[in-house]
């Protein structure tokens, strides 16, 4: 405990020493005027849904696919014109900010609270809230998603980027991961294992397609009222062969919407199978189909739709759906 307090005190002293000059309040985020050799340019650019495409072209759809409120953009520059870009994406909920981080779990884990986690490349047990790689720091902090990027990475720029990250998260809450993730079964006995480092939370079919392409149309009726997770399960044989399937689950506002969406999915994705879902489909077992890329299974579970793709056999498809059923129904 004494050691931990000492580390925190050292970190705080470092921040004070590294920051010089005034700070600016950006929705309660205190960004320093200078950090190392970098000086903040004024004023920040404020971007909302009306001008996001002008700022970032089609990348704007990514943020609009979540519940986006607005973006604040700060530029820092040093005397050699090496810039650091700070983008603060204010989202409606912590889940939305988490979703943006979950698009890519690559990079070094950065923890602003526990120095022992810094630099680890292993997925830690506690939620990852910041990742750094090649000059880019990405942060999930409460309802904020932040990108802090040095266009030219050097040891000094990395230090400045991390310092800015620390300033961004200071005094902000650290809510847990979305509830939907807790429903995922981490493994099926000693066989299929969830790839935690590939779990993605989203609400938009465009985001789904960027992770796992399903269709150019919105065949699962995804929108801002839905919550969805896609995650691969992997099976590694003793010979080292790796099999992977994709598990997708969507939480709808109610059972009727879930049923309607799953019917839409079935018609679009399995047009050769004409049968409508029965009203009590959630009480029966999963529907299983042999397709071109393996076995597909789906099941309606109250307000949830669960689908698994690319399973090597019928049994695996059924097992993965059924093993996730407990968690999902507990979350109703």
């Amino acid at each position: 405990m004494v050691q931990k307090t000492l580390i925190l005190l050292i970190c705080f002293s470092f921040v004070v020493a590294f920051f010089q000059g005034d700070v600016v309040e950006a929705n309660k985020i205190a960004l320093p005027k200078t950090v190392g050799d970098w000086r903040r340019l004024e004023p920040p650019r404020i971007i909302d849904s009306s001008n996001i495409f002008k700022y970032m072209n089609g990348a704007g759809e990514l943020y609009l696919g979540y519940r986006f409120k607005h973006l604040e953009v700060f530029d820092y520059t040093d005397e050699n014109k090496n810039n650091i870009l700070v983008e603060l994406y204010f989202m409606e909920t912590p889940d939305d900010a988490f979703g943006l981080l979950s698009l890519d779990w690559g990079g070094e884990v950065v923890s602003f609270g526990d120095a022992s986690e810094n630099g680890s490349k292993q997925p830690p047990a506690s939620p990852v809230r910041a990742l750094y790689g090649a000059g880019l720091l990405r942060i999930w902090s409460d309802n904020l998603y932040a990108r802090v990027m040095a266009l030219r990475e050097t040891p000094a720029s990395k230090q400045a980027v991390i310092t800015l990250g620390r300033a961004i998260v200071a005094n902000r809450k650290s809510p847990p991961e979305p509830e939907l993730l807790k429903a995922l079964s981490p493994h099926m006995g000693s066989a299929w294992k969830l790839r935690r480092d590939r779990v993605c939370f989203f609400r938009s079919y465009l985001v789904l397609n960027s992770n796992y392409y399903l269709s150019h149309e919105n065949i699962l009726n995804l929108d801002h009222a839905t919550e969805a997770v896609i995650a691969p399960y992997e099976l590694v044989s003793t010979a080292g062969d790796r099999k992977r399937c994709q598990f997708l689950t969507v939480k709808y506002e109610n059972h009727a919407r879930a049923k309607k969406a799953l019917d839409h999915f079935r018609k679009a994705y399995l047009p050769e199978y004409k049968e409508e879902l029965s009203a009590d489909s959630n009480n029966s077992g999963p529907s299983l189909f042999k397709l071109e890329d393996g076995w597909l299974g789906y099941q309606l579970m109250g307000r949830y739709a669960a689908i698994v793709f690319e399973c090597p056999d019928r049994k695996s498809a059924g097992t993965i759906i059924e093993n996730n059923q407990n968690g999902l129904t507990r979350n109703q």
């Binding site: 399903l214 018609k267 397709l291 890329d293």
Partner: peptide, 14 residues
């Protein structure tokens, strides 16, 4: 008359 929806399966089938 139903619109054919392009899906992942079309890519797998070629």
């Amino acid at each position: 008359n139903e619109k054919y929806v392009l899906t992942r399966r079309d890519f797998i089938r070629g």
